[in-house]
Design a protein around this nucleic acid. Structure first.
Length: 817
RNA sequence: GCGGAUGUGGUGAAAUUGGUAUACACGCCAGACUUAGGAUCUGGUGCCGCAAGGCGUGGAGGUUCAAGUCCUCUCAUCCGCACCA
């Protein structure tokens, strides 16, 4: 057969579409598999990262279909978001038109890649129907106390009078007008994800078997649970006077109560209320105030690199020693963790140490190493040791003393045992147009009121001006004016829209909804029960924390709202690596992109899919290589021409293995090895590159023999194994030769693995020196004798200390002298 | 800065449980076929060395009969850091 990729790919894509080949059955008695890849943002064209993502999920979906399972493999578009608005600012396009044009184009690309999506369940999160259900959930969450309104700091461009996303802030300035940004305190909505912190942490345990351990670790660290001591530090009289007696004390949190006697200063976050008070009441010099503002306007990442601080000229009293402790501001103290204030123990904390060295503050040792000495002039001692200079606690193990010290604080009523989390509540307000409107109403009389569910969706107006200044919904002349649902008076709609992470936190549930009741409800309990959880979830490692944590949170909330009955949405997670070219992430600005359409046109979708799965294991970064792509194309051509060696049949040929010659036996063994590996790869290992290599090995061996039964059997099996990866060519071959009867489960014949000769390595002191052929039935003594024979020149005049035989692998002779 | 990962030939990578390092592919070299080759096929290809042999999985140590794999330290690169998705 001559390989005409364009022709056969068109042919089968049309066939699949005409026959709805990939729509799941609604028969809920069948065994199901829910295969999901993270849905794309419709940026305009697919990039190679998408091709990789969907090639992986498609391989899973097709594999399970071959095994007769009912497969849900849906696709949609995460279609709200900033890029649509950026395009509007840049080109004057309308976000809606821009978005849906992009979606249309990308859908064509999906088809041309042969992905087996269930198209009947396709959705875009900007569809009003999606917004309708989402707004309903927001109202439920508000009623359950999981959504609240509070002030928070945002990046503000004073020139454009608009809120900026972090990525729109470049070197502290607005991306459009270069005006230095300021932090502005504004009302926003938050999800109370912290209420679920403990459960989100605890349930990571349920995911141990199906999720990569590094993702679990990252989530664990992100939630950042830590136990410690919270206590108040009181100002001395002089400091109180300085603060106009406005403040008596402030609260600090420490995870190291054992170092309490080593406190040599305390540090407040630049945003701390005491600092704010001092700025407002001119208790600090102009110079100091401008330093503080600089700290505040620096990104949280940069703030932690170079430590910086300022003395406030205040002192607090150490609760135990009653000594005076100076109060500083430190840039690395964050307002949104703990109480925004820390006690500093430079002798036993790296950050406190660096800070103390920089500003020449005291370093008080209170823990000594169990053995030896620590040089405090060089670094902090952060390990466990024995307490010193700690009054009644001297001599205690520092770790164990934490309990005693907390107990003492509690007895004396100085402080209490506290658990803190790094996890913060999730801010969901966006002061933008292209997002789901938050369905709330502000009424002068009734306050914050929920929209009535029957009025949903609250849809976006089409006639907006988007110029990067202000909030488009706020600026719209009429949209925000409405009647209060409670009292009927004139009221104002909330003009903030929702973070797009909200949409991606429940789309996997929506996909479970049958198209038959798509309009009426978000999903039904019965449908969810059957399809969830997701059996294989595939997406980029960059989503390891935020998206996956938010989706887990929503799942738990929906459970508590009574919509679903399970705790975790994704049973198995595969995080794919990025696609690189010339060692760098593909990006337009670097000019190193490869357009999937060009590859498809030149070589076909099968080549693109084969290369992308062959070049690296899915979890690793993938380096794009044009000539290796051609190599994949050549392999497919060889596969097509190899099909000439096979004959037409509706059943797999029966072969008497013992009657075959050596090269025929070897070829069969390789074919069945590839089949065995295929099952392993799909079920557990997910290293498609090794599966493809196995098939290539088999092909190489097959070319060394000329038995048409062996070749036919091989092609029957190989096109079945490869169908999930290169579906078009496999369907074509299978259609021509096997009446498409081979695209299902293949039986492994163990007889082909039986060998009568083994090759063993022989080493001397672990160094490989020779290799021997022995009969599979040879005894240990016989094998060792043969081995010694093969390495006699290494043994000459040496004393043999030990003889080791590793069955089927090697012999190691240990010698002396 | 903090958290997480990765590092093996000229290149992408394989080695599943501590057991013959470099499977498979790209590239390169040589040859065959051909009017032609950026097509196809065959053979070779870790490095040093004429050879015997030596060296070799980012670097330095260690454990072991045996280490790419385990331990300690270290260097480089990549991902995330809460309003990019």
């Amino acid at each position: 057969m001559e390989y005409k990729s364009q022709e056969i790919e068109k042919k089968w894509q049309t066939f699949w579409a005409d026959n709805d080949s990939f729509e799941p059955s609604e028969d809920f008695t069948k065994e199901k598999k829910y295969i999901l890849s993270m849905f794309p943002f419709p940026s305009g064209r697919l990039h190679m990262g998408h091709v990789r993502n969907y090639s992986i999920s498609d391989a899973f979906a097709r594999y399970h279909r071959q095994l007769g399972r009912n497969v849900l493999h849906p696709i949609g578009f995460d279609s709200f978001g900033m890029p649509a608005e950026n395009a509007a600012i840049k080109n004057g396009s309308h976000p809606k038109g821009w978005t849906y044009d992009n979606i249309d184009y990308m859908k064509k690309e999906f088809k041309s890649l042969g992905f087996s999506f269930s198209t009947k369940r396709e959705l875009a999160t900007s569809d009003e129907l999606y917004t309708k259900f989402e707004q309903g959930f927001m109202i439920d969450m508000y009623n359950k106390g999981l959504l609240y309104r509070e002030k928070g700091l945002l990046n503000w461009c004073p020139h454009d009078e608009t809120v900026l996303a972090n990525e729109q802030v470049i070197d502290g300035c607005c991306w459009r007008c270069d005006t230095p940004i300021v932090k502005k305190d504004m009302n926003q909505y938050y999800f109370k994800i912290t209420q679920y912190a403990d459960e989100l942490l605890k349930d990571l345990d349920q995911l141990k078997d199906g999720w990569p351990s590094q993702v679990l670790t990252m989530q664990e660290n992100w939630i950042g649970k830590s136990n410690g001591l919270a206590f108040d530090l009181f100002f001395d009289d002089e400091s109180k006077k300085l603060l106009n007696s406005k403040f008596e004390s402030f609260d600090v949190f420490t995870t190291r109560p054992d170092t309490i006697y080593g406190v040599s200063y305390t540090a407040l976050a630049p945003e701390h209320e005491i600092v704010n008070y001092m700025i407002e009441h001119k208790l600090l010099s102009d110079e100091t105030i401008s330093e503080i503002n600089k700290m505040k306007n620096t990104s949280s990442i940069d703030r932690q690199k170079e430590k910086a601080g300022l003395s406030l000229g205040l002192n607090v009293i150490h609760p135990l020693t009653k000594k005076l402790v100076p109060v500083w501001i430190a840039n690395f103290v964050l307002m949104d963790y703990g109480s925004g204030a820390v006690m500093a123990v430079p002798a036993h904390d790296d950050r406190d140490y660096d800070f103390a060295k920089k500003y020449d503050l005291e370093i008080n040792e209170v823990i000594k190493p169990k053995v030896g000495e620590h040089d405090f002039s060089k670094s902090a001692f952060t390990e466990v040791g024995e307490l010193i200079n700690s009054e009644e606690f001297n001599g205690l193990n520092s770790k164990k003393s934490q309990y005693n010290i907390i107990k003492m604080f509690e007895e004396k009523n100085f402080g209490k045992k506290t658990t803190n989390y790094k996890l913060k509540d999730w801010g969901v307000s966006r002061q933008r147009y292209w997002g789901a409107p938050i369905p709330f109403i502000h009424c002068d009389d009734c306050g914050l009121v929920m929209e009535k569910k029957e009025n949903l969706p609250i849809a976006l107006p089409d006639d907006v001006e988007i110029n990067g200044e202000g909030s488009p919904l706020e600026n719209h002349p009429t949209w925000k004016h409405c009647k209060c649902p409670t009292c009927g008076k004139d009221a104002l709609r909330e003009t903030d829209t929702m973070d797009t992470f909200v949409e991606s936190s429940w789309y996997f549930l929506r996909f479970c909804a049958s198209p038959s009741n798509w309009e009426d409800e978000a999903f039904s309990k019965e449908q969810i029960k059957y399809w969830m959880g997701v059996d294989n979830y595939i997406g980029g490692i960059e989503h390891a924390i935020l998206h996956l944590l938010y989706a887990r949170f929503f799942t738990k909330v929906f459970r508590d709202l009574g919509y679903i009955e399970f705790d975790e949405p994704f049973e198995n997670l595969l995080t794919q690596g990025m696609v690189l070219k010339d060692g760098a992430k593909m990006s337009k600005s670097k000019g190193n992109t490869v357009d999937p359409d060009e590859i498809i046109e030149k070589f076909g979708a099968d080549t693109a899919r084969l290369f992308i799965l062959f070049a690296a294991p899915p979890t690793q970064e993938l380096e794009w290589n044009d000539s290796a792509v051609e190599g994949s194309y050549r392999f497919l051509k060889r596969l097509a021409s190899f099909s000439d060696k096979a004959y037409k049949t509706d059943t797999i040929p029966k072969i008497d293995h013992s009657s075959l010659n050596k090269s025929e036996k070897l070829a069969r063994k390789k074919v069945y090895e590839a089949l065995k590996r295929s099952n392993e790869v799909f079920e557990t290992r997910h290293t498609f590159n090794t599966l493809i290599a196995g098939v290539m090995e088999a092909m190489n061996s097959l070319n060394e023999q000329d038995n048409s039964d062996v070749s036919t059997e091989a092609l029957w099996i190989i096109t079945s194994i490869l169908e999930p990866i290169v579906p078009h060519i496999c369907w074509e071959i299978s259609d021509q030769l096997f009446n498409r009867k081979n695209l299902d489960k293949q039986v492994i014949l163990e007889e082909v693995f039986v060998v009568d000769e083994l090759t063993l390595g022989v080493s001397v002191n672990g160094k490989n020196r020779a290799s021997i052929e022995v009969s599979a039935s040879a005894s240990k003594d016989e094998i060792i004798a043969t081995a010694k024979d093969a390495i006699s020149k290494w043994l000459d005049g040496k004393e043999i200390v030990k003889e080791i035989l590793v069955p089927k692998k090697l012999v190691n002779i240990v010698i002396k002298g």
